[in-house]
Design a protein around this nucleic acid. Structure first.
Lengths: 221, 221
DNA sequence: GGTTTTGTTGATCGGTCGATAATCAATGGC
DNA sequence: GCCATTGATTATCGACCGATCAACAAAACC
């Protein structure tokens, strides 16, 4: 019989101590932190994080010097792993219409960022410190919205060399923000069945129409 | 000499006790709560609320049975006093074009709801309980978006009697959400000078163009 | 002016939180 | 099989929080 199978200290079937590699343990803690913080905000207790990770609370301080660094680890886990490098190529694939490209992209993108855990953690981060917000705002603008404007310019034969202006980004920001807000609305208990792809399509239609209106009067049926 | 002018207990110039009417005191407490909760979220302490209101913390429990009712009082102060009854008439004033009416309305509306205290309290409330969110979502939809669709129908001569469908609300929701998100973005430390009226105008233009495209092919230059 | 009413305060309780120190025990090296 | 390493736990500290209660004092009343 293996020793310690049923010592007096065991209250359940779970072995009292399970020893993991630092990387694996740390990963479990971060995942527990992400889940908890997404539910309750960053005032969720370290004890609850530890409970969900199946460890005791002091052990948490073996992997993170303080709670703040645990919060930042949760940031990284969720936000930094959002962007798929393949999307950059997708957005610039000029063999397909802009609307079709960005439809594909936004369906994949929102499938990630519309998850409650992502949206809630995002808004909690936004409310807590403007630092994270400024950083991610830059990501959205450079990776998504400016490519959208540039690719649409090229599609309209307007040339894509010169810099994208602030005014050109207004409508893209409006629609991107509208989509984000739609995700938040659906995430917060709403169940009216309006599906994501349709909403994305409408947003992209609005942009395509709007950019065409500024172009040399090419009409779309 | 008035008694108690400089007793041993006075540490500053402030009189130790200032006696107010319950209504005035309660109002001061609620205002302090609104300010604090907008800054730190609803985990802001009752002691800090009391400090900002210039009273001691136990007195707070003379006016509110517990912290939750103080939170709800802060809700009411900010959210219930948002809507100006005059706006209902404004939105239905058919002597002016729909775009012009809603431009005026949204400029007044966002002047209130784009205040950091409003936006932050709103998102904190949204993240905390879906109840408040569902309630306010109903307000926006019934008071703003459905009138927008109906008035635009009338302007296009399509008749405004039959009910507004869910699909018709998609684009309005998209643009309304985009505006809200724009306010949040500006509130969170961004200073790029893009002004509200211009953004509102672009959002309304998008809606007007979109609804015109669905009409019997009337073209707008 | 004495008495009542009630707005206000000081003191404090039980609970939870973040963080630390001492101790225990599972694994790898030899 | 012993030992060193280090993952993991128990116990605990100081701070803060929500809430309660007895005591105090400023108006209000007659």
């Amino acid at each position: 019989m293996p020793k310690g199978q049923q010592s007096q200290r065991d209250k359940g079937a779970e072995p009292v101590r399970k020893r993991l590699s630092p990387a694996a343990r740390r990963s479990e803690i971060v995942q527990a932190a992400v889940d908890l913080f997404a539910e309750t905000g960053f005032d969720g207790s370290t004890r609850e994080v530890a409970r969900r990770a199946g460890i005791t609370q002091p052990l948490l301080y073996r992997y993170f010097p303080d709670k703040q660094s645990l919060i930042e680890a949760a940031y990284s886990r969720v936000f930094l792993e959002t962007w798929d490098p393949a999307w950059d190529a997708l957005l610039q694939d000029r063999s397909r219409p802009v609307a079709e490209r960005f439809q594909t992209f936004y369906e994949a993108y929102t499938e990630i960022v519309f998850q409650p855990v992502w949206l809630r953690l995002w808004y909690y981060a936004l409310l807590r410190d403007a630092q994270v917000h400024a950083w991610y705002r830059e990501v959205v603008q450079e990776q998504i919205l400016k490519p959208l404007v540039r690719e649409r310019r090229a599609e309209l034969g307007q040339g894509d060399a010169f810099a994208v202006t602030v005014e050109e980004l207004d409508v893209p920001w409006l629609l991107h923000g509208g989509l984000l807000n739609h995700g938040l609305r659906q995430s917060a208990g709403q169940r009216d069945g309006r599906d994501r792809p349709a909403m994305i399509r409408k947003a992209l239609d609005l942009f395509i129409q709007h950019s065409a209106a500024g172009a040399p009067a090419r009409e779309t049926g």
